[in-house]
Amino acid sequence: MNIEFIDIVQALIDGILYGSTYALIGLGFTLIFGAMEKLNMAYAASSIGGAYVGLGVSVLLSLPLYAIFLIGPIGGGLLSVLVYICCFRYLPSNNHLAALMASIGGLFFIDEIISHETDGSPLDFPELGIFSEAYFEIEFSDMFLGFRGDLIFVMFASFLAMLMLMYLLYRTRLGLATRAVSQQPIAAQLCGISIHQTNSVTFILAGVLGGIAGCLAAASVGVISPLLVLPLTVKGLVVTVIGGLGSIRGAIIAGLLVGGLESVFLLLRGVNERDIYVFLLLFVFLVFRPNGFFGAEIDRD
């Protein structure tokens, strides 16, 4: 196959648009890591679980299409806070390994429940209605670049979610409190902030983002399957590490970058080799820039 420059640009555009779901998942990982300095490995599982909840409730109650995108995030938030209660809340706060292992348990538990309930087979996920049919072309000198309507919707919805998150984190006392806890847990408690309360809120916020990401990812391919869980977990971790653990803008930029490059690798080397290069990218970052784009040196007394 003869690949021209325009094809690469086209792949990059598609990838960046789809990468906004990676950015959302990376944001969730990084939010939780920022608040507790712990990785929640069950995060992507609760995100996909949220999408399943949205699908299930909508089908059972025969609600219209858009209801999935409202119920999915709520389901994601609920599952996420359940993960917090089961895997983080009652474990010793200084034992990072225990929480890590517990959340890996949570990951497989949610994964298995989904597999069990759906007999392991993928379900049709409604596509994005008129957005799926829309397609825009832009003429660029004598070449044509196409924009898929559903991917534009995915990008738009992701960025809307990120803007709302930013507003919460930077403009309300609730967001300030969660940031205060992540910077100085002891002082924050002595400002009257309950750590468990703000941690729960952080998990809910992350879970809602994850539910949105799960719904968008499933809608843009038209199916949802338990097989989405592990790749999304891994991609989320890659994005979080490349962006810098705990860095919000890092997660957004890294999500788009990983999405874009992944799509280019797919074009150049095919689906079997794609992830090799994604992990190679992770490896390169771990060797040459272990703190990622914006990861701060940990500095606390």
């Binding site: 205060a180 002082a187 002595l190």
Partner: peptide
Amino acid sequence: NQCVDMGISRTFQNIRLFGDLTVWQNLWV
């Protein structure tokens, strides 16, 4: 945090401010 609700407050020997928040936000929190 319950002690704070009861009306206790304190400062620290080694300063523990929220460094990434502004002065105003530190007070707001």
